[in-house]
């Protein structure tokens, strides 16, 4: 055990940090992009406050298209775009772009469905009080949907952690890369097992935190 830690501890720790970096940074960007898209979907859909068939159809289709491409293919498919946006296609920096491209539409979709669950009557009550639409979106819709939003984000984070594992292909490192490089390519199964256990623990922790926060936000 001590031997193992001495030999691999540092590498695993580095991998852990890289995975966390990739996950957190991509998550933030995905929320920044996904939130407005989700709101746009809710507003422009049929019977929405700003019903607009063209915008809704376009955004909806783009999200569907991106979501149907497996991440590993997306990663290579958008290399030129990644290069243009991030200036590089390798390392943590190079993998953030494809992670966000994959995750933002997912977040938009889950925000949309969480917001659609909000009782229309409450929205109407606030309209009847002369509250403007932007304020209603933030203080009523998102507030009321926050518990479902947290549960959705939990799923998104777990998905992101999985996707970062493929980041090894562009040299971004991370736990998944470690497991692949040493566990599979160089045949060091104990490294692979250690990484798998760590990933399981991380996912458990994320899901538990998500559940607890969602329950506390729900208030009933």
């Amino acid at each position: 055990m001590a031997d193992f830690l001495n030999q691999w501890g540092g590498a695993i720790w580095d991998g852990f940090i890289q995975t966390m970096q990739m996950t957190v940074i991509s998550l933030l960007f995905s929320i920044i992009i996904g939130l407005p898209l989700g709101v746009l979907l809710v507003l422009t859909r049929k019977n929405g406050q700003l019903e607009n068939v063209v915008i809704y159809t376009v955004v909806n289709s783009v999200i569907n298209v991106i979501r149907s491409i497996p991440f590993i293919i997306l990663l290579f498919f958008i290399l030129p775009f990644t290069k243009a946006v991030a200036g590089t296609t390798i390392g943590v920096r190079g993998v953030i772009v494809p992670l966000v491209v994959a995750c933002a539409p997912f977040i938009a979709r889950l925000l949309e469905s969480a917001m659609l669950e909000v009782n229309r009557g409450v929205i109407e009550a606030y309209q009847s009080m002369g509250i403007s639409t932007p304020k209603i979106i933030w203080h009523v819709i998102i507030r009321e949907a926050r518990s479902s939003i947290i549960l959705g984000l939990t799923i998104a984070i777990i998905g992101l952690i999985g996707e970062t594992a493929m980041a090894g292909f562009v040299g971004a490192g991370g736990l998944g890369d470690l497991a692949y490089q040493f566990g599979y390519v160089r045949f060091q199964p104990d490294v692979m097992y250690a990484v798998i256990i760590i990933l399981i623990v991380i996912v458990q922790i994320v899901q538990t935190i998500g559940n607890v926060v969602a329950r506390r936000l729900k208030k009933n």
């Binding site: 009782n119 009557g121 409450v122 109407e124 009550a125 009847s128 009080m129 009523v140 507030r143 009321e144 926050r146 518990s147 936000l217 729900k218 208030k219 009933n220």
Partner: peptide
């Protein structure tokens, strides 16, 4: 002011 059959309160507040 307006009131409704379904009350329409914020559940989270």
């Amino acid at each position: 002011g307006m009131i409704f059959q379904g009350y329409n309160l914020l559940e989270t507040a």
